[in-house]
Simulated assay, not measured.
Amino acid sequence: MNPSADGDAPLLEVKLLRLFDLLYSTHSVTHAAELLGQSQPTVSIWLARLREQLGDPLFVRTPSGMQPTPRAEALIPIARSALESLRKLATEDAGFEPATAERRFCICMTDASHITLLPQLLAHVRSTAPGVRLEAGRIDATTGERLQSGEADIALGLIPELGAGFYQQVLFTQDWVCLANRHHPRIDGELTLDDYCREGHIGIVSGTGSRILASALEDRGIDRRIVLELPGFLGLAAILSTTDLIVTLPRQTGETLGRTADLRVLPCPFPIPSFTVKQHWHARYHHDAGNRWLRGVCAGLFLHNRTN
């Protein structure tokens, strides 16, 4: 085999590998030419090139046809393995079989989604993909980098800072409600704007949603009397159940907490812009079979379903 200018052995063309395999199987140049859809003179030229590149006659004429030389015998397993690898590369779509897959998926989400989305997602995954492990990651300044690197697979929420290089799909729209103790001493049925301004509030201070609420309050000139600030929704239901405080929060979270903690869900007494919850993923993983499966699960569970 002659070395190329850069010191590496020249690569065999795929057509020469196929010829090598067919000659070994058929022992006939004529038959190999038919299977390749080529003329016999063309195949003879290919065989001459193959012999030159491999530095061996490879096949010799005998009464029983073209028989392989010892070097051809030694090379045929390698050639067939290379052809099989090329076929897989060209045709195989690495699918994802949830029933048998063993894979970890990291989903970046807010702690509100731990309450509203994660239970349904986990139940579905456990029933359809028992070997899959889920990890709930945070949404923060590193979310984009984690999605790009593959450390995280998708992100669920309102993440307007994700721009070029990311795909997104709207799942549902969120508006706002207020939540209070079902036995609140001063609120019975309707929450008026006067009630809202008079009562003590719990302020949730993290996330894009909190900025939307703060902007709406500023536009209306409403100054809430904040008694307690929380970084998220952990412990919120227990606090509301044991105090006379109220909280303003996205409807899905409010209705979920209202059901599970027997709290009163009240219409917000002033308009707050709604927002969309989306799933986000990086373009690098747009065609990854596992990522496609996970996105399909989330769409099937949450698409256009506001309160789930």
Rank of each mutant, 00 (worst) to 15 (best):
residue 3 P to N: 03
residue 4 S to V: 03
residue 9 A to P: 02
residue 17 L to V: 03
residue 19 L to S: 05
residue 20 F to Q: 12
residue 21 D to K: 15
residue 30 T to R: 13
residue 34 E to P: 00
residue 35 L to I: 07
residue 36 L to T: 05
residue 37 G to I: 01
residue 43 V to Q: 05
residue 47 L to Q: 11
residue 61 R to W: 10
residue 67 Q to I: 12
residue 76 I to V: 13
residue 81 S to F: 04
residue 92 E to T: 13
residue 92 E to K: 09
residue 93 D to V: 15
residue 97 E to S: 14
residue 99 A to G: 11
residue 102 E to L: 11
residue 103 R to V: 08
residue 106 C to Y: 07
residue 108 C to D: 09
residue 112 A to M: 04
residue 119 P to E: 11
residue 120 Q to K: 11
residue 121 L to I: 07
residue 124 H to K: 07
residue 129 A to C: 09
residue 129 A to Y: 13
residue 132 V to D: 00
residue 133 R to T: 06
residue 141 A to I: 05
residue 141 A to S: 07
residue 143 T to E: 11
residue 143 T to L: 08
residue 144 G to H: 12
residue 144 G to C: 04
residue 147 L to H: 10
residue 156 L to Y: 14
residue 157 G to N: 12
residue 158 L to A: 13
residue 160 P to C: 05
residue 160 P to V: 03
residue 162 L to C: 14
residue 166 F to C: 02
residue 167 Y to D: 00
residue 168 Q to F: 13
residue 169 Q to F: 15
residue 176 W to H: 05
residue 177 V to G: 10
residue 181 N to W: 00
residue 183 H to F: 09
residue 188 D to L: 12
residue 190 E to M: 04
residue 196 Y to K: 01
residue 208 T to Y: 15
residue 210 S to W: 13
residue 212 I to K: 03
residue 222 I to L: 11
residue 222 I to E: 08
residue 224 R to E: 01
residue 226 I to A: 01
residue 229 E to C: 07
residue 231 P to C: 08
residue 233 F to V: 08
residue 235 G to W: 15
residue 237 A to Y: 07
residue 239 I to P: 00
residue 241 S to A: 13
residue 247 V to H: 00
residue 247 V to E: 00
residue 247 V to I: 00
residue 255 E to N: 01
residue 262 D to P: 05
residue 263 L to Q: 08
residue 270 F to S: 10
residue 270 F to H: 09
residue 271 P to G: 04
residue 273 P to N: 13
residue 275 F to T: 01
residue 278 K to H: 12
residue 279 Q to S: 11
residue 290 G to H: 10
residue 300 G to Y: 09
residue 301 L to S: 06
residue 306 R to P: 01
